[in-house]
Design a protein around this nucleic acid. Structure first.
Length: 491
RNA sequence: CGGGGCAUAGCGCAGUCCGGUUAGCGUAUCUGGUUUGGGACCAGAGGGUCGCAGGUUCGAAUCCUGCUGCCCCGACCA
């Protein structure tokens, strides 16, 4: 169909790579595992950031910035945290280069070895909590609600554009509270923020739940997550919110005096989403013609393509287009009038489909004569000719429809791909033949979880909130279980 | 980090097995013209340290060694 894009049925991974690269979202760089986010891709990330940032501020958080480099000694203070991240940390050992004696380039100066090595942050709990120690003395300093937008680095074995890169962009919220209850409320509140963002803005349905013990964040007492289903039937963790208890407060000695004068450790949370959301966005809605973007996150919501033979015709069209774009501006709808003479209309149509622009308008001599305009919506590729009168209201409504429609489509797909399995055989059959989410009983032990993982490659994505308790027996061991949990193969 | 594949013009590739003119093809780019309602056509032009570093040879894109990067499959993760 489309030039140069592998179809999903042919090779899903290749399709994903083709879209990311050909829609100009990102490309691989000269550095292993690290990508360049291109202007069009970054524009989408900026929209994601802007909305999330607004939501964080609305829930009382402030932004701050902490250092990229973390002293190695900080890292060892919280035992399970080290264990979780040690294997993938980049380490800075020297602070100077010098000219190579053989005259070929530069070498690390062996005389410039650091006394204490520095870790490039894989996450910032340690540097932040060592700082919070100085910021918190009394209950009056609480709650402390901080977020930072930053890059982090995790030395990944195998990387994929947006989904897993060695360096990625994210936000990380780090909060401190006087009581356990308040910290727990914060943990669930931020998960709700993520879920709302995913569904309302990304048009991507998610399932909220809690991670099993083995999938928890290193150092957390509880990890909550939102899980989304991709078109190939694999699950993607789209955001996490951690209840850290008093682990980091104890590790970094962060105490406060409560109203009765008693000294106690503070309660903590952390929560984050990353540029991985970009990967989720691509896989949630796109088709074999290219990217499909939800209008709320599309850098260009409406593209206008003029169709003309002579330059005089273009000028007439331009006058008509200006009338429309002035109104679009007032409505806050972003647009692009593509008057490039170097490409023909057909080329432009294909190009904007590839880039996922939600609405395309085409205006030619025939329309000028008849007072009409051609409107094509990206999600269904449906083409209609409508009157120019009232076109802006029509577009406004159409953008809402598209946002709704792609959400509904993704929701239907997701719902059709949640299945219950009542035996291990059934579980395996569903997994191999259909994929998707599987709800099944599990005895609650890490051993059984591990056995299922090694035998089927499926993992427990979460203990989902939205499914009620139900007595049953574990599909593997036959032991009693009080609820079904959510399994899937995942990214 | 293990197994497999790949690296030649911006992009996609041929040439490599079997060393030998000036390294080709498609596409993109630039110029001029004709075109423009679903990826236009004609004519001309520019563009290469053949991934990097060594080696063999009269001669290397081609043979040998090392390195780097990318892709796919595994072990680990947001």
């Amino acid at each position: 169909m489309s030039k140069g894009i592998t179809s999903r049925s042919e090779d899903y991974s290749k399709w994903y790579n083709d879209i990311v690269q050909k829609a100009d979202l990102a490309e691989n760089s000269g550095v292993r595992g690290m990508m360049v986010i291109k202007p069009y891709g970054y524009a989408i990330w900026e929209k994601i950031q802007a909305q999330l940032d607004k939501m964080f501020k609305e829930t009382g958080h402030q932004n701050a910035y902490f250092p990229l480099l973390i002293p190695k000694s900080y890292f060892s203070k919280e035992a399970s945290h080290v264990e979780g991240f040690a294997k993938e940390c980049a380490v800075v050992t020297h602070y100077r280069l010098k000219n190579s004696p053989d005259g070929k380039g530069v070498i690390v100066d062996p005389d410039a070895k650091l006394e204490e090595e520095l870790i490039i942050r894989p996450t910032s709990e340690t540097i932040i909590w060592s700082t919070y120690k100085n910021w918190i003395q009394s209950y009056r300093d609480l709650p402390l609600l901080i977020n930072q937008w930053a890059n982090v680095m995790r030395w990944e074995m195998r990387t994929r554009l947006f989904l897993r890169t060695a360096e990625f962009l994210w936000q990380e919220g780090h909060t401190a509270h006087a009581t356990q209850a308040e910290a727990w409320t914060e943990t669930t509140k931020m998960l709700d923020v993520y879920a709302e963002f995913a569904e309302t803005w990304m048009a991507m349905p998610v399932i909220k739940g809690a991670k099993s013990a083995s999938e928890r964040f290193a150092g957390a007492l509880e990890t909550l997550c939102i899980e989304a289903l991709m078109q190939d039937g694999k699950a993607l963790q789209a955001g996490t919110s951690h209840f850290l208890g008093q682990n980091f407060a104890k590790a970094f000695d962060v105490k406060f005096t409560d109203q009765s004068g008693k000294l106690d450790y503070v309660w903590a949370t952390s929560w984050g989403v990353s540029t991985r959301l970009m990967g989720a966005l691509v896989m949630a809605h796109s088709d074999d013609n290219g990217l499909v973007l939800p209008p709320k996150l599309a850098p260009i919501q409406v593209v206008i393509v003029p169709i003309y033979q002579k330059i005089e015709q273009l000028e007439i069209i331009r006058t008509e287009v200006n009338k429309i774009t002035e109104q679009l501006k007032i409505k806050g709808i972003s647009f692009k009038f593509d008057d490039r003479d170097s490409q023909r209309p057909g080329f432009k149509f294909a190009e904007y489909e590839l880039k996922g622009v939600p609405v395309r308008l085409a205006l030619g001599p025939r329309d000028i004569e008849q007072g009409t305009i051609e409107v094509v919506r990206r999600d269904t590729l449906e083409k209609s000719v409508v009157q120019q009168v009232g076109i802006v209201e029509y577009i406004e409504k159409l953008l809402e429809d598209i946002q709704q429609n792609i959400y509904q489509k993704a929701l239907n797909f997701r719902n059709e791909n949640i299945r219950k399995a009542n035996s291990y055989d059934e579980f395996k059959t569903i997994l191999n033949e259909k994929g998707g989410f599987i709800l099944a009983h599990w005895d609650g032990t890490p051993e059984t979880e591990e056995q299922i993982k090694s035998e089927t490659k499926a993992t427990i994505r979460s203990l989902p909130f939205e499914y009620e308790k139900e007595e049953g027996i574990c599909i593997v061991t036959g032991k009693p279980s009080e609820r079904r949990v959510l399994f899937a193969k995942s990214y």
